[in-house]
């Protein structure tokens, strides 16, 4: 099996703070890779460096696109990167407001991504938007409402629909369940699990919630102070943690 993404020795410093220190991992198609660690461990910086939104200081990010070409994310042009972000990659933000356009309707939020990849037929775009609303369990009659009128959980599901409508191959998620009520989280987790399976998506999921990675992630990376301290299959890392930091992280969790 070919890897979809290879991250090699990725480093990023903010002044004297090493936010990411020589991070390496490979991601395979259909896999969900969880990245856990406390606030300030560098996990969000890592995600943003992979998407080149925060350019890294050194290291490689190698992506195999749908045409089976090898792309070096930090060497391709800005427009190629933008194109990739609109089509094969998706980014789900912790705060739905950062990932949505709050001044346009729910339907337009989804349709906009389709316009980005060149769809022009209004009727089809609207039909696909309403299909995705249904998919993420937002009532169809809300299609012309602004996202600001939605609950937090609905906004997050709308963001998911906006990202997934272009059928990306790689989705980066930053704390997608953060700030949601537990009951709302379950709904989002179930949707994410179903959609990942049916679209054979690969996901990098940054979270501090061990329960979320236990249920969703195939593999796990534990970060601390910008370094990977431990990695393995999710059940290996959570049931048989080796590193002192991972052990304290898991023993501090109420329901691991």
């Amino acid at each position: 099996m070919n890897t979809l993404l290879d991250v090699q020795n990725l480093s990023k410093a903010y002044g004297s703070v090493q936010a990411c220190d020589r991070i390496s991992f490979s991601l395979y198609p259909g896999q969900i890779l969880g990245i856990i660690g406390e606030s300030g461990s560098g996990k969000t910086t890592l995600l943003s460096a992979i998407a080149h939104q925060t350019p890294s200081d050194s290291g490689q990010i190698i992506y195999r696109n749908s045409a089976n070409q090898i792309l070096h994310i930090n060497q391709i042009s800005e427009s190629e990167r933008r194109q990739l972000m609109r089509s094969e990659w998706g980014f789900v933000r912790q705060h739905a407001r950062d990932g949505l356009r709050m001044k346009v309707t729910a339907g337009a939020n989804i349709g906009e991504r389709l316009l980005d990849i060149g769809q022009r037929h209004y009727g089809r775009i609207r039909a696909e938007s309403s299909e995705w609303l249904e998919q993420v369990e937002i009532p169809g009659h809300r299609i012309d409402d602004l996202p600001g009128t939605f609950s937090g959980g609905m906004q997050q599901r709308l963001q998911l629909a906006r990202v997934l409508v272009t059928r990306p191959r790689l989705v980066l998620m930053d704390e997608p369940t953060g700030g949601l009520d537990v009951s709302v989280q379950a709904k989002l987790l179930d949707l994410m699990r179903q959609i990942v399976r049916s679209l054979n998506l690969s996901v990098i999921l940054v979270t501090h919630d061990i329960g979320v990675v236990r249920l969703l992630a195939h593999r796990l990376i534990v970060m601390r102070h910008g370094k990977v301290v431990e990695q393995g299959l999710t059940d290996q890392v959570l049931d048989d943690p080796h590193h002192p930091y991972t052990q304290s992280l898991i023993s501090a969790t109420l329901v691991p």
Partner: peptide, 9 residues
């Protein structure tokens, strides 16, 4: 047994 499942390393 957990080692046989590669649950324990």
């Amino acid at each position: 047994m957990r080692s046989l499942y590669a649950n324990y390393r």
